[in-house]
């Protein structure tokens, strides 16, 4: 019985990762590819870790698997957010079929200038130089 559960978890996790990779090839621009990676790939990792924990029921395995799950869940949205923001500032072209783009209007109006985080890091850099 346990063998079947572990096998199903392992196969479904691998399939989710495969779907994320297909999405990276198929979807049309950077932002949609980030959608695929932050969601499908992290769920795939979680399912596969669950299969390891069920197959090796020891404390240390559970704790390490929990650490991996926490890192993946907490850090992948932050990484995607920072990368998407920089990609938009780099003027990476957006794909077809966009219905609205309110971020472009905001950047043209200058709403996003004077980023406090930018100012702090810039002042630190100048002091060092």
């Amino acid at each position: 019985m346990m063998e079947w559960i572990v096998s199903i978890l392992l196969i479904s996790g691998a399939l989710f990762m495969l779907v994320a990779a297909i999405g990276v090839v198929k979807l049309s621009d950077v932002y949609m590819r980030m959608h695929a990676i932050t969601k499908a790939a992290s769920l795939g990792a979680i399912l596969m870790l669950a299969s390891v924990v069920l197959w090796h029921p020891q404390w240390i395995v559970g704790i390490e698997a929990l650490m991996v799950v926490l890192f993946v869940i907490l850090t992948s949205p932050i990484g995607a957010h920072m990368l998407a923001r920089v990609a938009y500032r780099m003027k990476v072209p957006i794909g077809d079929g966009y219905v609205m783009d309110e971020l472009k209007d905001a950047i043209e109006k200058g709403d996003l200038d004077g980023d406090s985080e930018n100012k702090i890091t810039d002042s630190i850099d100048q002091e060092k130089i």
């Binding site: 779907v19 999405g23 695929a36 309110e102 971020l103 472009k104």
Partner: peptide, 26 residues
């Protein structure tokens, strides 16, 4: 939400992507 959104994204990737209406919202 994580499980639901992964299923949604997987479904969107497997089926044709003509139904998408992407955009940036404030």
């Amino acid at each position: 939400e994580l499980v639901l959104s992964s299923l949604y994204v997987a479904w969107d990737i497997i089926t044709p992507t003509d139904l998408m209406r992407p955009g940036f919202v404030e």
